[in-house]
């Protein structure tokens, strides 16, 4: 039995094996997910975008008063994007609010969705082109651009969508890259994969912006170093989350969300734009009230 399996494997040409591998990758990137999950994600993400531009990335209108400090990012130099101004920021704000409210209901998923994606992207560019780029928005930007590709999806739609599956995979990968990429960045910047763990980075961070519940820990640098090692190892292992299911997935999510809670309490850095995108990992449609469930066919 074993021998015959081996011969059939040997008989497989490299091209066929390559093709099978590719099909495997394609299946992973294009799972089927219920339309209702898409509808829920849309409602959450688009409403969150509105919250974001008013309460988190709320420096775009004020930036309009200081165009002299505008230092365009690569995309702003490569494309003829408008210079920052109060009027431009207010216009973007109105379009994003109206567009996001429409898109959140599932109406005009492509027209409203693309409009919001482009305006929100420009909003973030104007926010981050003044000398500081934050990394908590990667997954949310990706979500804004992939959600319009799914097309129509209502809470009460039955059936499943591969286009939706791809969009959710993209969001998941962006969430995970926020951690894994952070580990790689530490490697690239410090010249070795684990040097960062033994550094004084948390001391540096707490001196500069530590909250009252963080500052006492400056007297215990060994403890901060343990924290750094835990974070670093978790970041390197984060891609595993993409392949977890069930209880392990919930545990992993709880760990990373707990990490964000701690950085919020100690540094005032909440990463909610990434946190909200963790929803892409879970079967949220199960939370819908029964009357909204798709009728069984």
């Amino acid at each position: 039995m074993t021998a015959s399996v081996e011969t059939s494997a040997n008989r497989q040409s490299p091209t066929r094996r390559w093709r099978r591998g590719l099909a495997h990758v394609a299946r992973w990137w294009l799972p089927e997910i219920p339309f209702a999950r898409v509808a829920i994600m849309r409602a959450v993400i688009y409403l969150f975008l509105i919250y974001d531009i008013f309460f988190f990335r709320n420096d775009v209108i004020p930036h309009g008063y200081s165009p002299e400090l505008y230092q365009p990012l690569w995309i702003g130099r490569a494309l003829p994007l408008p210079e920052p101004s109060v009027g431009l920021a207010q216009t973007l704000q109105i379009v994003i609010v109206v567009g996001a409210l429409i898109a959140a209901t599932g109406r005009l998923p492509r027209l409203a969705g693309w409009t919001v994606a482009l305006c929100y992207f420009e909003w973030l560019i104007l926010s981050m082109s003044f000398g500081k780029v934050d990394h908590d928005h990667l997954a949310l930007v990706i979500a804004a651009f992939v959600l319009p590709t799914i097309g129509r999806a209502r809470f009460s739609d039955s059936g499943a969508s591969r286009a939706g599956g791809w969009a959710f995979r993209c969001i998941q990968v962006a969430v995970i890259f926020t951690y894994f990429g952070a580990a790689l960045a530490k490697w690239v910047r410090n010249g070795s994969p684990f040097m960062w763990g033994n550094s004084a980075v948390l001391t540096w961070a707490f001196i500069r912006r530590g909250t009252d519940i963080a500052r006492w820990s400056l007297d215990y640098p060994w403890m901060l170093r343990i924290g750094q090692w835990v974070m670093l190892i978790a970041e390197y292992l984060s891609p595993v989350v993409l392949f977890l299911r069930g209880r392990w997935l919930y545990l992993a999510a709880a760990f990373f969300l707990g990490f964000h809670l701690v950085t919020y309490l100690t540094l005032g850095i909440h990463f909610l734009p990434t946190v909200i995108c963790w929803l892409a990992f879970f079967p949220t449609e199960k939370l819908l009230p029964k009357r909204l469930h798709a009728p069984a066919v």
């Binding site: 934050d134 890259f177 530490k186 550094s199």
Partner: peptide, 11 residues
């Protein structure tokens, strides 16, 4: 690059 807080500071 996800480089926020990526620079290891000297003890």
């Amino acid at each position: 690059s996800m480089a926020q807080y990526a620079t290891g500071h000297d003890l």
